[in-house]
């Protein structure tokens, strides 16, 4: 995709997005609702036309083609299964429209039913299937014509939590087995992190960062990305020195730690760094880089969250696993020190 822009009247839904999606990858568009991710998907499918820019598929411009002329299929958010057709007829619909012979359609449908574990359900009406089964039919239907790209528009949002988890694994398996490029839209960061090869985080019509789940989570390039995904501590710091891909920064307490920084940025002066709560440790006063008073302990079962009022202002959250049963060893209003692991802090771009 090249310099895609989409205007709805005076509202710019998508602003100059350029993305390259590699073949055979599981690519996710992640962002809050209204960030333009669905519009982007609909432009790839052909339901919307870009106001500017092109959609290229293997180097050919497909941005002006009608949806039925594009080798791209969609799994709709509400599945959009044809209620008057059986499971098999639904799955075979695309091939039938392409004018494939009946024998070929039948054999593909059979393969597809097997692929999504719905053998023997071919003649059922789709209206009698459970939500998870409908989901599988929708997948099979979109995969049957072997599209070059499969688009998935928040397909898991209608399922309950347990089913959603198992469908996540299922989707990943299908992607690996078929080798088809998946473009997945979601606002659920966990979904994106578990399934994707690469993620594009979007906000207000622009792509903020593209990278592997690890990049996105551990090396957020800017405040929006860090904030949107997971919990984060933001700290003000001064850059002391830069060497290679690391920089030394001085915290408000005067302690120095090493931090990574995004590509294409030379950090200097005052910067904001982020530290994930699980990358810090609590200790007795004087043992870490930040000192403060333990304000609140939130027990979460597997973990504890420690809210620390840092000397000099601000709250820092430390997450520690409950490795053993019993009290955590700290009490509220106690003075503590926060240690930050090596190379876990990331300097933000802005």
């Amino acid at each position: 995709m090249h310099g895609i822009k989409k205007w709805f009247g005076t509202f710019q839904a998508v602003d100059d997005v350029t993305l390259e999606i590699r073949s055979n990858e599981f690519f996710t568009l992640l962002g809050p609702s209204g960030c333009g991710k669905t519009t982007l998907l609909r432009m790839i499918a052909g339901f919307e036309l870009p106001t500017e820019g092109q959609v290229l598929l293997d180097g050919t411009d497909i941005s002006r083609l009608l949806p039925n002329q594009r080798p791209v299929n969609t799994v709709f958010q509400n599945y959009a299964l044809f209620p008057h057709l059986t499971v098999a007829e639904n799955i075979g619909f695309g091939l039938k429209m392409l004018g494939k012979p009946k024998s070929e359609i039948d054999s593909v449908v059979k393969d597809m039913l097997k692929l999504v574990h719905l053998e023997g359900r071919g003649n059922n009406p789709v209206t009698q299937l459970s939500g998870g089964q409908q989901q599988r039919v929708a997948l099979a239907r979109a995969l049957a014509p072997r599209p070059k790209v499969l688009l998935l528009d928040e397909p898991l949002s209608a399922l309950d939590l347990k089913l959603r988890k198992s469908m996540q694994m299922e989707l990943k398996r299908l992607q690996l087995e078929t080798g088809i490029t998946f473009v997945f839209v979601t606002h659920d960061q966990e979904e994106a992190l578990t399934m994707s090869d690469r993620i594009a985080v979007m906000s207000t019509g622009t792509v903020r960062q593209v990278g592997s789940p690890w990049d996105i989570y551990d090396r957020p390039a800017e405040r929006f990305v860090a904030d949107f995904i997971g919990e984060t501590n933001f700290l003000e710091a001064d850059v002391v020195s830069v060497s290679g891909d690391r920089a030394r920064v001085r915290l408000s307490s005067g302690a120095e730690i090493s931090a990574t920084y995004p590509d294409g940025v030379t950090p200097k002066g005052k910067v904001t760094i982020v530290v994930r709560p699980e990358h810090a440790r609590l200790g007795p006063p004087g043992s870490g880089v930040l000192e403060g008073v333990l304000d609140d302990i939130v027990y979460l079962g597997t973990d504890n969250h420690f809210h620390v009022k840092v000397d000099g202002g601000g709250t820092f959250i430390v997450r520690q696993q409950n490795a053993k049963s019993g009290p955590c060893g700290f009490s509220e209003q106690e003075r503590v020190s926060i240690a930050i692991n090596d190379d876990v802090a990331q300097i933000l771009r802005d």
Binding site: F47, N78, A80, F82, F93, M97, P145
Partner: peptide, 20 residues
Amino acid sequence: SLERAASDLYASSFQTFRYV
């Protein structure tokens, strides 16, 4: 979205009308 799905699955506008 049913008609959208049909056109996504290669149905022409006439086929969409006829089959969906």
